[in-house]
Nucleic acid binder design. Structure first.
Lengths: 178, 178
DNA sequence: TGCTAAACGGGGTGGTCCCCCATATCGTAC
DNA sequence: GTACGATATGGGGGACCACCCCGTTTAGCA
């Protein structure tokens, strides 16, 4: 990769992160290019599409979330570990708007992106289930689907996102209540 | 309202319902006008924007959902009644794609649309809570927020939508488990 | 039947995404 | 230090979009 191309690539990722955080995953590609001071063709050449651009933007977020999952495997309370991790995923999605959409797009296109988070969360869920600290019938796909749904609709409102996650974790109408 | 205007209005609502069910809430307005055999200006004059168009399209769905809530207030098991109603809301959103987005837009713009569903569900939730058949801390806004989040992300996959709702109802990690 | 208020839709504006290709720049081999 | 081929660039274009102006047509009434 030529030096000028690398400079532009890095600049584009930084600007894209900024604009996406402001406007969400459907931010205008033209504006990202404009703000970065390059032609829109350059942006499209570097990423080839919105999905790939979002993946580049959220690469480091994903790394952080996966690492967090690995760390939490050492936590003494498996149920708490799962809960904390799901909160972290939501917190990331709120801080950097667009992560939820990026994951959804990635899942649809079979990109590696979604698979990494799934692998990271699966062990956390399994451990919680073995300690009877999570619903035995839940799959990691569904748990992340739920978390992702919350991220998407509440990504502009951290307090709401937290409330919805808490509600989904303890259950709207858990069997224990009746 | 002139007879020709009324004819076009009704035709537009019907065509819009069809196209939105096919393509989702962000379907092309131009295509709806094209399929209805009118100019796009006519469509915009009748509705004044996508949100209003979606509200017109889902008016009858909302009526049905609200009526269902009223009927279920007579159900002997309040927890079951709430569960069945939430399933019905999801089922509607899956059958007519776009309902979730319409509700979200409506809520953001303070339209009456969202308020009606909220009123309908509030009593159902309250009754379930009084019978200890629903989480005491849950608000109807949050419950519907969760249901809406599920509708939005899983509106193309009825089975997934059902699984996510079931999981949210019984809880990923209910207190009873540990 | 004639008239007026209402509805209509072609076409314009300004925006989007994405791509082609002539031009400019980089990095190297001499 | 220079010349040159490989690579990156971005203006401009195509196809689409939402939304609106305004000249034309039509409905419904007197």
């Amino acid at each position: 990769m030529r030096a000028d191309a690398l400079r532009n690539y890095e600049r584009l990722v930084a600007v894209a992160a900024e604009v996406v955080a402001e406007q969400g995953a459907d931010a205008s590609m033209e504006e990202i290019a404009r703000r970065a001071g390059v032609g829109s063709a350059t942006l499209h050449r570097h990423f080839g599409g919105r999905t790939a651009m979002l993946e580049a933007v959220f690469e480091t977020s994903i790394d952080a979330v996966c690492k967090r999952a690995a760390d939490l495997l050492g936590h003494s309370d498996p149920g708490e570990a799962l809960r904390v991790w799901l909160q972290a995923v939501i917190a990331h999605a709120v801080k950097n708007r667009g992560l939820g959409a990026a994951l959804l797009l990635s899942a649809e296109r079979g990109s590696e992106f979604h698979a990494r988070i799934t692998r990271a969360g699966r062990q956390l869920l399994k451990r919680a289930q073995q300690h009877r600290a999570a619903d035995a019938g839940a799959t990691i796909a569904d748990v992340l689907g739920l978390v992702n749904a919350i991220s998407l609709t509440a990504e502009r409102d951290a307090a709401q996102a937290d409330r919805l996650l808490a509600l989904a974790i303890r259950g709207v109408s858990p069997a224990a209540v009746s």
